[in-house]
């Protein structure tokens, strides 16, 4: 009985509060996406509900804009940028954190410092480089530029993780005759999985959301990413097409969330198993 009350107070209530805080805007998106325009501006109605839901906004989004191609572009670009960032960061972080070669400390700091540069001012000089490399209006422009703000974070997060993995584990494996590559592959990287996962989520999400570079470096309507495309076609002057915009926001994020939930549980389980043995 008291245990139940304690659980309610220390767990269920706070969690519920969090969920309301974090999810309310999504509920709002959903209601807006289903509301007919008429009800949107009617102050007499309860704004939290709609009595005459409509799929018009969804239809408009899917068939009158390039939403599906945008989703595909965003996916391709995000996967590409994430893979590139993760691969380079993993190598760099392992080298800096584990090999401790001459200059590694300075390198770590240098990579960290690069993150301090705000993109707002980078995009004009950067556009010259992108254009010089012939990447203008090509997804590769984003796959190559997004790592500039993903790699520093990933490297530093992974450094932190590598530090939590006892050096002895690696040394033991080496004593047992494993090569350095085998140690990386079978000992260090699996143990750093939560960190790798965090990097993955971080990198993918930031790529998915980026606006400024996507706006400047891509031009053709069918090359655009979801955030830029939605703004282009659904903000008409001073009128925001709220319904389709919110439908786009939801459709654009929920599938990703589901994918994450799969990743999270999968890796967490793998990890817990690995540590228990």
């Amino acid at each position: 009985m008291t245990r139940g009350v304690a659980r309610l107070l220390t767990f269920q209530l706070p969690l519920a509060a969090f969920l309301v805080f974090l999810l309310f805007p999504f509920y709002w998106m959903l209601v807006t996406a289903l509301k007919p325009n008429r009800d949107l501006y009617n102050l007499a109605l309860n704004p939290l509900w709609t009595w005459s839901p409509t799929l018009d906004h969804l239809r408009r989004l899917l068939w009158e804009t390039h939403f599906l191609p945008w989703m595909k572009n965003t996916l391709v670009i995000s996967v590409g940028a994430t893979a590139l960032s993760l691969a380079t960061s993993l190598l760099a972080a392992y080298a800096i954190g584990r090999l401790r070669f001459r200059g590694s400390g300075v390198l770590g700091i240098a990579i960290f410092l690069t993150y301090l540069v705000p993109p707002v001012i980078l995009f004009i000089p950067l556009s010259r480089i992108v254009s010089g490399l012939g990447l203008w209006d090509r997804p590769a422009a984003l796959v190559l530029t997004y790592p500039t703000f993903l790699v520093p974070f990933c490297v530093w997060l992974l450094l932190g993780y590598f530090r939590t993995i006892p050096q002895e584990l690696e040394d033991c494996a080496r004593v047992d005759g494993a090569s350095r590559l085998q140690v990386m592959r079978y000992v260090t990287f699996p143990l750093a999985l939560p960190g790798i996962l965090s990097c993955l989520i971080f990198a993918f999400t930031l790529s998915w959301n980026e606006y400024l570079y996507a706006l400047v470096f891509l031009s053709s309507t069918d090359q655009k990413t979801v955030p830029v495309g939605l703004a282009t076609e659904l903000v008409t002057g001073d009128v925001f097409q709220w319904g389709p915009l919110m439908a786009g926001a939801l459709l654009g994020s929920v599938p990703v969330a589901l994918a994450y939930s799969f990743f999270v549980e999968h890796y967490v389980a793998a990890l817990t198993g690995a540590l228990k043995e």
Binding site: L212, L215, V216, S219, S220, T221, A231, T232, E233, V235
Partner: peptide
């Protein structure tokens, strides 16, 4: 090519 009217300038 189209951009939102306030986004033409940065491009």
């Amino acid at each position: 090519e189209y951009e939102t009217w306030t986004d033409v300038q940065p491009k």
